[in-house]
Design a protein around this nucleic acid. Structure first.
Lengths: 293, 293, 293
DNA sequence: ATAGGTTTTGTCAAGCTTTTGTACAT
DNA sequence: ATGTACAAAAGCTTGACAAAACCTAT
């Protein structure tokens, strides 16, 4: 099917990798296996160009050349199955199932996705994008209250299932709760799962939690990090004093779009507005940097 | 199964007692008996930390050091281990774990109970009695909002985990939802699980669902039974017209203490006030009797 | 399945721990056990990165290095949910536990998997693949009779635990039994569980059941579906007459590899040779199609 | 509480090998 | 185009060391 045949100079120009290096990669790691012209010139396909690009990405990600090459070769071999199931397709299928009240089908899709990816990827590439899309469609009136209800309920069950035992272990404790009045807890649960993969112990208080009692639990359990989540800024506004109280002696973070409600009132409160997985990584790195032996 | 092994410095930091004094207490009163590292360092367990804390309390209470120590040792020896065989003991342990924010322990207790009994017994002899007790203690002011929050959250996760896939199959469909404004969903989930063990297919809409959308879904999915749940009668009062609308062409039941809010307005609406498991059995028998194949 | 292999420099960059220290932790505490490149360079997995992170958490929690490391190692070993994200890994762990006669660990792995997936996925992606692998290894002589016995016995107990109450309810009745002489019942139990998740009521007669008994029970209970299971075709051969007798007035299926023993003698007998979960779905759809309300 | 000795642990160095991009000769 | 060479960068092993933490005994 492939028609274009590139000579090494052209492949070099398109990829930005010198001809010598391309030959070295071929000799040393078998990255490419070009056909030859009658005169012995290497002839590459567009697939080979793609393979070189993957190699470059792996290098940029910090892998050493040998490992980068073998990963690129493996990726190329797995390619067909990869193209069959992209995240966006899975999200669309999930949306169709959930918003059509087809729980069995939704569970099956979740099963399949979980079996094929890591928990991190599941959260940041499936769950969170879907939730954002759901929110958008809800605002646009394309999704009814019941659909949103139903979808949340199924996802909540699934995430809490994955959360089992997240309070155990030896790592530092993080206390998670939704701000008073806040009912959206899925993003917070996802954040808790991501934190868990970094060794944290999670204490989870759920939706709509009074601030003062958050403080009580934080004191009682000696948690090192408190995360208060809210999707609407007004849930946070005016809570500066209480939040400052809670943050005494520990790190405090506010998650979700509601973090904007903080304003400049609390400079030492961490705002978590990005993807839960990435924020979990950031918070962990921060804590590790602050308290080395 | 004990994991953490603390060196004397860390034990000192966590207890506030100087290393020298800790060693003195060990030598003089045998308060602690730490294992040793290959090089001879003392290694303490978290139980030892607890023992030191008891010692401190005894001192603060005015006991002399020798007496304080022997009392602490005796207290540690009396410590009840994990042996719950009767439901009431399991419930008490569960309450202690949940209301002490000890999720891992709660999950372990739930694991054990579930492994030893049927789902029905689990629901009617553990979960529901515990929820009733929790409600009572909450009204009496013995349980804080947060404790109730936390306990519900853990149980919800667990029950929803058991609920996976309850929407599919060959049985008749039942639609479950909490009345508008009603947040207590655990009893309803328990009822759904019990129904499921009788072969029903469950569609679950969760807490605080508008009545009209319940009707919409019931029509769309052709359910045979609709269950609206409420713990407070006022959530149901005044909804007679809408309920009668929903019950057209299908069976309608109202669950929870809120069923009293019905009064005599709707004689054909089933009131489910008993244990969810027994009520699930009753409803199933009723439907079987009405539609003999 | 693991793709990325990091050299020590990259692991250092991602974890923030110096290469020297990483090597020291490996040498002194066995924290990591990297594979080596042909030239002797250490190659780490992403799981190793996670282990380093947990080590850092433990250090931050105040543990000394030796204790922090052993806790991190134990955490990684005790926590299948962390290491066993993919089915193939979970199966490998299960095999190691069962064939090493470590029942507690096997139960723990089963707990975890069951908590994180649906029953269907558990059966079709864990149990059945494991059983197939076990059979292969047994034929190859890699597994002893005792190991096979032990593994089957643990799994049987677990599956029968899940089967509790599968005989009651509102759905149509299915009668399950192994053919005369057939001892392998696990696949049949799995099929029963899958049927149950579709709302069927299951009557289970177990291994090595005389055909006439099957017929008697089928008549007495008015079952709608009879499933006879056999892994060896010869268990079925020559039973054509009796089977035809049983199938009178109801649907009859033969499950397992033994279904081939049917030959063309019984055209109306359903052969179930695929995955139990898929077959349960197929049978249910068939019955639904044949008897629409 | 102090003194004097031991263990633990992070860091560094020396000397050698492997890896890898680039250069050069044929 | 091929094959070889080469040098910088990154790793490996062994060994050592000093600060911090811990031990016993007085």
């Amino acid at each position: 099917v492939e028609t274009s045949r590139l000579r090494i100079g052209e492949l070099s120009r398109r990829s930005g990798v010198s001809p010598e290096l391309l030959r070295a990669w071929e000799r040393r790691y078998g990255l490419l296996d070009p056909v030859r012209s009658p005169g012995g010139l290497r002839l590459y396909s567009l697939g080979d160009l793609e393979r070189v690009r993957v190699m470059q990405q792996n290098l940029a990600a910090g892998l050493a050349a040998a490992e980068a090459a073998s990963a690129a070769v493996r990726a190329a071999e797995d390619d067909p199955s990869v193209t069959a199931r992209t995240p966006s397709v899975a999200i669309a299928e999930l949306a169709a199932a959930l918003e059509g009240f087809d729980e069995p089908r939704a569970q099956m899709i979740l099963d399949r996705v979980l079996a094929e990816t890591t928990l991190d990827a599941f959260l940041s590439e499936i769950v969170m994008p879907y939730l954002r899309g759901l929110g958008d469609r809800w605002e646009a009136g394309d999704v009814s209250v019941v659909q949103e209800h139903f979808a949340s309920s199924v996802l909540r069950g699934r995430l809490l299932g994955l959360a089992r035992g997240w309070g155990r272990g030896i790592g530092p404790r993080a206390l998670l709760a939704c701000a008073p009045g806040e009912q959206h807890d899925l993003g917070l649960i996802a954040f808790g799962l991501a934190l868990r993969t970094h060794g944290w112990r999670i204490e989870y208080l759920g939706a709509d939690t009074p601030l003062e009692t958050i403080g009580d639990v934080a004191d009682a359990l000696q948690v090192e990090l408190v995360v208060v989540s809210a999707v609407a800024p007004q849930r946070i506004e005016g809570l500066g004093a209480e939040l400052r109280q809670i943050s005494r002696g520990r790190r405090l973070a506010v998650g979700g779009a509601g973090a904007e409600g903080l304003g400049a009132t609390a400079p030492d409160v961490l705002a978590l507005t990005d993807d839960p997985v990435r924020e979990a990584e950031r918070v962990t790195a921060l804590v590790l940097a602050a308290e080395p032996g």
